[in-house]
Amino acid sequence: MNPTPRLSRTEGGSRRRATHDPRWMRALLVGAAFLFLGLFLFVPLASVFAHALAKGIGPYLETFQDPVTLSAIRLTLIAAAVAVPLNTLFGVCAAWAIAKFDFRGKQVLLTLIDLPFSVSPVISGLIYVLLFGAQGWLGPWLAERDLQIIFAIPGILLATLFVTFPFVARELIPLMQAQGRMEEEAAMVLGASGWKTWWRVTLPNIKWGLLYGIILCNARAMGEFGAVSVVSGHIRGQTNTLPLHVEILYNEYNAVAAFAVASLLTLLAVLTLALKSWVEGKQAASLAAASAATSP
């Protein structure tokens, strides 16, 4: 490709003027952005910790010795431990089928995978109540066998699975589609087995995208409120996850404890954002390295 003609030195000033805004405008816009983000992001973030520590560190730490809080932490960890691996397995399978093969109805499948993101959290819980609840389609059958899904842990797991369903798949599908299938085909033609091709060729190529999807999936699994609230039944110490525990404490006017538990979830969110931008940096670096390796 011919190098694009550079603008001559005398035109350099107008080039700058064309794409650079005057200083007062930059200051105004940056100021406006900071004001908006400050009001809606920084202040709420700071207020969580301020209220949590309003009565000092003692009452803050006491919250985490309460067995009810501990059981909420346990249930939240269980929900994430179930939802993240299952949805990761699904995401990898769906991405492999969609990115590496051509078949009819692919576009429909892509839309269906995204469905849970467009459904209100409340409805995400409701659909399981209508299926497994006492009045639901399978309610009588479950009652006969003394099985309980709604207002019990299985319902919480199902609702969490539903709301975190697309995260890994939607991260991997575009990435694997962009990478094409030539590297895998080369490995197979050279005699590698399917498993070996996956572990040695595909996985190293998608690892950062996969990690990105898992981080987002985990954050939502631990933080989901609406869907879990519908199916949980709010039984203290039994079917309460951390976000539901925040609600109970807040409604009992126990502000310090509510914000203490909320601060734990806020730390999780901040950690998620930090990991996310770290992975984004890694991904950009590996993409740059890959394109540098392939260009002459």
Partner: peptide
Amino acid sequence: LVDLPFALPTAV
């Protein structure tokens, strides 16, 4: 931080 509303649990 722009993504905070995605990451922060809605109850918080």
